[in-house]
Design a protein around this nucleic acid. Structure first.
Lengths: 150, 150
DNA sequence: TATTGTTATACTCTATAACTATA
DNA sequence: TATAGTTATAGAGTATAACAATA
């Protein structure tokens, strides 16, 4: 007599949820920091990506920040008013705009760079330098589109 | 003559953004799957956590799903109407409710278990079994509250 | 005809505070 | 007095489609 295979039927631990929880933990002190700035987490992300990767077109920026283009459009309008970013129309294709950091955005990043790096350093100490790098490598690989698609 | 140390001023790659991008990549096929169910990502998360960890009180469930208690309250009300979950008042403390899967929720999970597991298996193949486990371990450790606080 | 970015709209979740009931 | 959960409310982001301008 063979037992029915469906015994307890507990599923594997969830990678998306693990990623979310890890992110919430890491973001907690950053969120606290952002209270002073009046910036949403998303706008801060826009600044960070521009700082990391330099000027980008909006479609690319949307991908890089994990924001939808319509959401990004409105954020950029507000951020442009606040001199956080500036947009330069591309000469040879006037549909496109190159988004870059503007004075207030650069200032915002500079003012919070020390705190932001301290938060990360604290985490690195808790988690280990090598493992932190390893984790970042794995996450980047996980997010990379499968080779051959670009 | 010593060069000024602030050379290019490029910041370290961002762990929160890396976590977000990885999550978006992993979630993409799940989101597609959820289109059929009519469930939001958050409600799906509630079901998955209950499936993974069994019945829980609402405050614990809010923590586990990374949702705020007021958001969770309204989601649970709708999910209760739809028989996705049920709530049992705790006998010895009538402020508390134990949330558990109900018939429709169990059915929903069962109907999508195969697809959900296939998505994860595909990822595991691309990424390697061991490294996937390792990644999950690291993420859980990262999300763990520092020892001594509980 | 396809692509870049915008506008419109409905909806959901976030976030905070104030509240109820139980302990 | 403190805690579990609810309600209220404002606001921001999500998601989809339709649109304008340009290529």
């Amino acid at each position: 007599m063979v037992k029915h295979p469906r015994v307890i039927h507990r599923r594997a631990r969830s990678l998306p949820i693990a990623l979310l929880r890890a992110r919430e933990t890491v973001m907690a002190p950053i969120r606290e920091m952002l209270l002073d700035t009046g910036l949403s987490e998303q706008k801060w992300r826009v600044l960070r990506v521009l700082d990391e990767s330099g000027p980008m077109e909006q479609t690319a920026l949307a991908r890089a920040t994990c924001l939808l283009l319509p959401s990004l459009t409105r954020m950029l309008q507000a951020m442009e008013d606040d001199r956080l970013i500036a947009r330069d129309q591309v000469a040879h294709d006037r549909r496109r705009y190159l988004v870059r950091l503007d004075a207030a955005g650069r200032g915002m990043l500079d003012r919070h760079a020390a705190r932001s790096e301290a938060i990360f350093a604290e985490l690195q100490e808790r988690f280990g330098d090598e493992r932190t790098e390893e984790l970042l490598d794995m996450l980047e690989e996980l997010a990379a589109p499968d080779p051959g698609s670009e």
